[in-house]
Design a protein around this nucleic acid. Structure first.
Lengths: 342, 342
DNA sequence: ACATAAAAGTGTACCGGTTCCACTTATTTT
DNA sequence: AAAATAAGTGGAACCGGTACACTTTTATGT
């Protein structure tokens, strides 16, 4: 284990001053004779020299690191988002520090503290909904904060990138109504989350447009983690007048819900039509292939990274950015047309 | 956007020297009177002071950051691995820099350069198989390198954590043989990858034990990305004497293969029995529920992090570590017992 | 009370880069 | 040919922490 050469070692070996080496390292920061540049480069290669990022960052804050704070990377939606964010960031020469909260605000708080200490230039996050003061502090410190997928209404000054939750749930519900369903259930995220609430709101809107009376028994909020989604599904199946159609608007709970339906021996779409907010490849492989609401993850990632870096890149737009991208309703085979026998 | 207070600001406001503040920051590094400690903490809180990691890292290399270099986080296997690695690292106060290679050795090379500049203490990676010199350099520099899932045979000094690829493929193949299958196909990773090769080797071993003659037409290597798996599946279905059973040992290509089988209208397990290397929840939701080889991702993650940090934590074990954990064959409904009509 | 030891606190060099400014040497202008 | 300008290089301060060597204060023992 050899010890790393420093810029001074390079300077000495090349017979120049450290200032010159630094200029070679940062083209455009000053003039260097072509011959000198070549010699220095040669020496750097021979010595296996790599400038140390930590030292570099000490002088000026690091626009080279982004924090990506997600609830849970084992959720395919977040995993794909992470993948795209990382790619997008790399294409701009930015690195990504990945952190997870497990939807736990205490953990979130610790992660945020770390990100502050790292002086990351931007943070892309799916907030738990708490730690308001910390989020505010981050912004005051000049860190560009971008909420993705969800947001926190009481932090109206933070940028947000998400799909149009209201509209996508409305469209899904409207599709079911158009197929003749009158008892339409929905399982959404917790009421404390914006996605959870907004999707329910879209659902209600669709019911109203279709002239259907909302039944609170058909509306379920479920936590993102644990068996909550499955329990909600079971509960829905056991009410007096069970639904003939179900919107699973809680992405993290889709497999839980489907598992429960499967164990209960529910025929899809014969007994229950289903639309899920989830566009993993497997939704197409199921029997029947699931009708889904597809989130344009690429766009979410691209916009998030762009916003998270916008401040750093100089063009500090003073006003807040809210980007809503459209989700796509992909019709497959899990929605049945109901015979109107009444 | 206020500018950040430094340790000197804190020292001045608290009426002490920077050394004392530093001691408060690093308990155990020296004596501080309880009253002083309280006062300094108070001032730090009021000023919103957070010590800057970059400055801290400058003096001693950072055992606070790990590099996680994966092929692709949108692959559920890697996603879950990332999730566990991040959790495991966080529980030890370590941060994770996530990078992806898209199986491209050029990109891998660039990512490695970045990791060198960051002086990360350890790297957990799924190597593409190239960049041998860089991997070696990393080790010489004292970076703890751990290959996970795959390895590079020509780098025998690098730690490896993976499942027993040979044995898991052997077991899967043996199960099919025990169910009476004599034409067993396999789609594995590329021949350039250790997983690709080792699983094929296990497959051959199982055939031999079962007294079956290997047929090269039934053995397919497919790239991890793109439509290669699907193409391999199609090819297998179109040979003169097609298989009655298939092992999909290329995790990244499982959905591709299944999609192709589905489009071809293949009845599983009626016409083709299937075992896949993939344990996402959806494999249980399929009709029929898939028989799978389940990788103990928790263990892989835990061991990887442990090894990646072992050097740093002082206990420099001079010899190389190779950790092989057992995969579990979970029998469900996608394997049919064949009537031996011959 | 007085020596002595332990505790508390301070000053400052250092980590490895970047950059400002001064300085020397070449090149151009008139 | 002298003066002005540009190009190339070097010296040293600085970024924000850490830790060593040292001084001052407080506690302990007889």
């Amino acid at each position: 284990m050899q010890k790393q050469p420093t810029i001074r070692d390079v300077a000495q070996a090349a017979g120049v001053s450290v200032a010159v080496v630094s200029r070679v390292l940062n083209p455009g920061s000053g003039p260097v004779a072509a011959a000198t540049r070549g010699r220095v480069n040669e020496v750097m290669k021979n010595l296996g020299y790599h400038p140390r990022t930590a030292a570099r960052e000490l002088k000026y804050g690091p626009p080279t690191t982004l924090g990506l704070l997600l609830a849970d990377v084992s959720n395919p939606f977040f995993a794909r988002l992470a993948d795209r964010v990382v790619q997008e960031a790399h294409s701009r020469g930015i690195q990504v520090l990945l952190m997870t909260t497990q939807e736990d605000d205490q953990l979130e708080s610790e992660r945020l503290a770390t990100l502050i200490e790292r002086r990351v230039s931007g943070i892309i996050a799916t907030p738990t909904g708490n730690n308001l003061a910390t989020w505010k502090q981050l912004q005051d410190l000049g860190t560009e904060v971008v909420f993705v997928d969800r947001s926190i209404p009481s932090l109206p000054e933070v940028d947000v990138v998400s799909i149009d939750n209201f509209e996508s749930a409305r469209a899904a519900t409207a599709l079911l109504a158009a197929h003749g369903h009158r008892r339409i259930g929905i399982i959404s995220g917790p009421a404390s989350s914006t996605t959870g609430r907004d999707r329910i709101a879209g659902y209600r809107q669709a019911l109203e447009t279709a002239g259907l009376e909302p039944d609170e028994l058909l509306i379920r909020h479920a936590a993102f983690r644990g068996p909550a989604g499955g329990d909600a599904a079971s509960a829905l199946l056991n009410i007096e007048e069970p639904p003939t159609a179900l919107v699973v608007a809680n992405t993290a709970q889709v497999t839980e819900v489907l598992r429960r339906l499967s164990h209960a021996g529910i025929d899809i779409p014969g007994r229950l039509s289903v639309i899920v907010f989830e566009d993993s490849p497997w939704t197409e492989l199921m029997t029947p292939a699931l009708t889904i609401v597809k989130q344009p993850i690429d766009l979410l990632a691209r916009h998030s990274v762009q916003l998270a870096l916008s401040n750093t890149q100089g063009k500090t737009s003073e006003k807040r950015n809210v980007i809503r991208v459209a989700a796509e309703l992909v019709e497959r085979s899990s929605v049945a047309r109901l015979q109107l026998s009444k």
